Amino acid sequence: MISANAFVTVAFQDCDPMQVVWHGNYYRYLEEARRALLEKIDFSYQEMALHGFAYPIVDTRMKFVSPAQHAHRLEITARLTEWENRLRMDFVVFNHTTGKVCVKAHTIQCAVQLNSQEMLLASPQCLLDKVAACYK
């Protein structure tokens, strides 16, 4: 399975009044790992646009397991688990400071043609070729 990691240190402004990471900030952390994974398969957001596609997130799920706090060091792992008809990435946010998993999540993105704004029901060949190249 294709995967990539990103690391973040929790910033003071990412925490809520209870001194834990505000839940909405985890989506920014997932984006760091998603970007790393897309770059790993040579299909960055710029590359998508060059091929005439965007991949908006159409569904997401996040399970909060344990909290992270200011200055904690987090590792976010993204795994590409589906790509034939849509992009599904599964994520784990691991807290190196506490040794615990903070979050388990997944996102689903679908290809949209930039010129027509139509959503595709199958992934375009350019994405399939990029993923296939990672398995060679």
Rank of each mutant, 00 (worst) to 15 (best):
M1D: 12
N5W: 06
F7H: 12
F7M: 10
T9A: 01
V10W: 06
V10I: 14
A11V: 05
F12I: 08
F12L: 04
Q13S: 09
D14H: 13
C15W: 02
D16P: 05
P17R: 03
P17D: 04
M18Y: 14
M18W: 13
V21N: 10
V21W: 05
V21K: 10
W22H: 12
N25G: 02
Y27T: 08
Y27C: 00
Y27K: 02
R28Y: 08
R28A: 14
Y29F: 14
A33N: 03
A33R: 03
R34Y: 00
R34M: 04
R34F: 00
R34E: 07
R35K: 10
A36F: 02
L37P: 03
L37E: 10
L38V: 04
E39K: 08
K40S: 11
D42H: 08
S44I: 12
S44E: 07
S44P: 07
S44Q: 08
A49R: 13
L50R: 15
H51R: 13
G52C: 09
F53A: 08
A54Y: 10
Y55T: 15
P56C: 04
P56D: 00
V58Q: 02
V58K: 01
D59M: 04
T60M: 13
T60P: 09
F64D: 00
F64L: 05
F64W: 02
V65N: 04
P67D: 10
H70D: 13
A71S: 14
A71V: 13
T77P: 01
T77F: 01
T77R: 14
T77Q: 12
R79K: 12
L80K: 03
T81I: 15
T81M: 09
E82T: 13
W83H: 10
E84M: 02
E84D: 10
L87P: 02
D90M: 01
D90Q: 04
V92L: 08
V93E: 07
N95A: 04
T98M: 05
T98W: 06
K100D: 09
V101C: 06
C102H: 05
T107W: 02
I108C: 02
I108H: 03
Q109D: 03
C110F: 00
V112L: 04
V112W: 01
V112K: 09
L114H: 06
N115M: 02
E118K: 15
E118H: 09
M119L: 12
L120H: 00
L120N: 00
L121H: 10
Q125T: 15
C126Q: 11
L127R: 03
L127M: 03
D129L: 11
D129F: 10
V131K: 07
A133P: 00
C134P: 00
Y135N: 07
Y135T: 07
K136W: 01
